[in-house]
């Protein structure tokens, strides 16, 4: 079991504290939803956890060892990161793009090993992109592209998966498919942090939620504990509509508060 933790992370940009002493944890086997209004610092936190952004203070640890003690390759093998609305500079084919996920595993530039091929195929099947294998990335719809970029991250078979708004560009069916996939991946032993804007998806599919507001963690815990009225009022200035189906509670943003 692996655990990725951000400990008391702080980052200032000028007078503004973007991360103001944040603790964040994900362990293998769980899907953690990172929610909060725009500008709360979600993407910054995710990038800090992925070692893409130096922080002013605090540390990121993987299994209690600082990630900076790992080699870049080792880190890349264990932690995958998918940026928000990522694009490809060149119209490469889907199978080649997913294959880039094998780079940390020393994939040769010309030839992929059988293990590489197997990992790429598994990742494409899991994301339902195997039928697109030979298509060029710039011919895909934005939903297809999101799933391909997710497949790219899965191809590296990481322990921890960091996703910045993985369902933003997807239609409802695809959103459900991706969230189900994340749950399945967690069940197979991956730890997932996903930045989400959709509170109903967050409440349904995440094991835990972390609600960020103005660079701090406003609330953390089970969806029920985090999505309380006073938290939503403070963070989003909304009043939710609550319901239940199939024995599961869900939350919908319903009314703006003045």
């Amino acid at each position: 079991m692996s655990r990725l933790a951000g400990n008391n992370l702080r980052l200032r940009r000028g007078a503004r504290a973007i991360l103001n002493g944040i603790d964040m944890l994900v362990v293998t086997g769980e899907v953690v939803g990172l929610i909060g209004p725009n500008g709360a610092g979600k993407t910054t936190l995710l990038r800090a956890l992925a070692s893409l952004l130096p922080v002013d203070a605090g540390s990121v640890t993987l299994d209690d060892a600082g990630v900076d003690t790992l080699s870049a390759t080792e880190r890349a093998r264990r932690i995958a990161y998918v940026e928000q609305s990522g694009t490809a500079a060149w119209p490469v084919s889907v199978v080649d793009l997913v294959g880039l996920g094998r780079l940390p595993h020393g994939r040769g530039l010309q030839r992929q090993s059988a293990a590489d091929d197997a990992a790429v195929l598994t990742a494409m099947r899991a994301t339902g992109t195997d039928a697109l294998a030979d298509r060029s990335i710039d011919t895909l719809s934005s939903g297809e592209r999101s799933r391909v970029l997710l497949a790219r991250a899965l191809a590296g078979r990481p322990e921890i998966l960091l996703l910045d708004e993985p369902v933003a560009a997807l239609d409802p069916a695809q959103q459900l498919a991706v969230m189900e996939l994340l749950q399945r991946l967690a069940g197979e032993g991956m730890g997932v942090i996903a930045v989400l804007h959709d509170l109903s998806l967050a409440s349904r599919f995440c094991h835990r939620l972390v609600l960020m507001h103005e660079g701090r963690v406003l609330a953390e815990g089970t969806p029920d504990a985090v999505l309380r009225d006073e938290h939503l009022a403070r963070a989003f200035a909304i009043q939710p509509l609550r319901g239940a189906a199939d024995g599961q509670a869900f939350v919908l943003p319903w009314r703006r508060l003045k």
Partner: peptide, 10 residues
């Protein structure tokens, strides 16, 4: 190909 952030994460 996938941008600087993704390249670094790789």
């Amino acid at each position: 190909t996938l941008g600087e952030d993704t390249a670094r994460s790789l």
